[in-house]
Design a protein around this nucleic acid. Structure first.
Lengths: 202, 202
DNA sequence: CATACCCTAGTACGAACGTTCGTTAATCGC
DNA sequence: GCGATTAACGAACGTTCGTACTAGGGTATG
């Protein structure tokens, strides 16, 4: 890897951490440079504009998410086990503090850009659509496997799962309530129980 | 009412709208003054500092919320009717566009300040605690009335209700998905059904 | 080892930020 | 209606913002 490319990666990693605390808009080139012991201009040269930096920062966070939440879940058995793994990984992502000290960046950016049209918002929407699709697919597979009852609506269940994660994030981050994780687990179980197939096919 | 007091109210109303779009941090005194055809210094004189403006803006939004969501719900019959009214009002708050063009200000501020200690965060936490307490109380009443089964955990149910609202806000605001409101209704029904008392006492 | 390129730092810019100042104009209580 | 109080203004403060330049040193390739 070229020198520039590796410092660029270094910059983006720090940018993800900083943006998770200050938001994508609050993330400033000056403070980012200071954190990395670089000059503002030297850092800026890596990105043509601030929007580029924001987009690449968001993309980096999305990649991290898919690598650490979605991808590992695919290693688990199709159906409920995979769905549970996905949920568990997701909660792990929510509470991770090392490279996301301010909580999920996509979530923060969603609130920030939900009424600000542009490339950032488009990227957020695309990522969210991809995530929803993946969850819904996992649910559909669980139905096919006979783990969930056939009448289960994958999109509705995805919606409710997402709600649990959002509430967990909120309680864990703002209120500092660690019990939110147990609450999330309980909510998941009740949700799955309500849609559990009467008699497993296999 | 004194002259200063009424322009102050005018300022705060506009501040709530602007902050709902740009966040409490993104809300700048200059742009706010421009919107109101005032001078920056004239506006600033009403508040000793930007943090004061932020705090008063947030308080105004909280008052609006309690007046339009919680308070009207108390007029409905104790138990499930009141709980449903509360939820319905809440969804109405989420989708209102006139004075909250950028979505719920408390929610935006929560994401912005969840990792920024200070007076703003404290106010947010206090408001959230009050809200949670009110919802949990409504649930407890519904249990006492025999509408929900006695083993229902009010805090757990409050948590899950909150999750549904959060997911609705997200889908409605970021994805522009109006079906989120129907999804929320369906999720509420499933949740209430799971906790419904077998035989109503009254 | 030499050369070409790629980084990075330095400097400067106009604009916007929150804040303070002194002053004028409007409003209030008597 | 007069005098005291309050509301609003315009200008300027120092700082930080994102963004252009110009050089010079480090790195990788021939």
């Amino acid at each position: 890897m070229r020198k520039g490319e590796q410092t660029r990666t270094l910059i983006l990693n720090e940018a993800v951490a900083l943006a998770s605390q200050l938001g994508l808009e609050g993330l400033s080139i000056g403070s980012l440079a200071e954190r990395l012991d670089m000059s503002k201009s030297g850092l800026f040269a890596h990105f043509g504009s601030k929007e580029d930096l924001q987009l690449l920062t968001l993309k980096r966070a999305q990649t991290l998410f898919f690598d650490e939440v979605l991808s590992p879940a695919l290693k688990h058995a199709r159906g409920l086990p995979r769905l549970r793994a996905l949920f568990s990984n997701w909660l792990g992502w929510v509470k991770r503090n090392d490279d996301l000290p301010g909580g999920c960046l996509m979530l923060a950016a969603s609130v920030e850009y939900d009424d600000r049209p542009g490339a950032v918002r488009d990227l957020l929407v695309a990522g969210q659509r991809e995530l929803r699709g993946a969850v819904a697919k996992a649910i559909r597979i669980a139905i096919d496997e006979g783990h969930l009852e056939p009448h289960t609506d994958p999109w509705q269940l995805t919606f409710e799962l997402f709600g649990i994660v959002l509430a967990t994030h909120h309680d864990f981050r703002l209120l500092g309530d660690a019990r939110a994780l147990e609450r999330a687990g309980e909510a998941l179980e009740r949700l799955l129980e309500a849609h559990r197939a009467a008699a497993p096919r296999a």
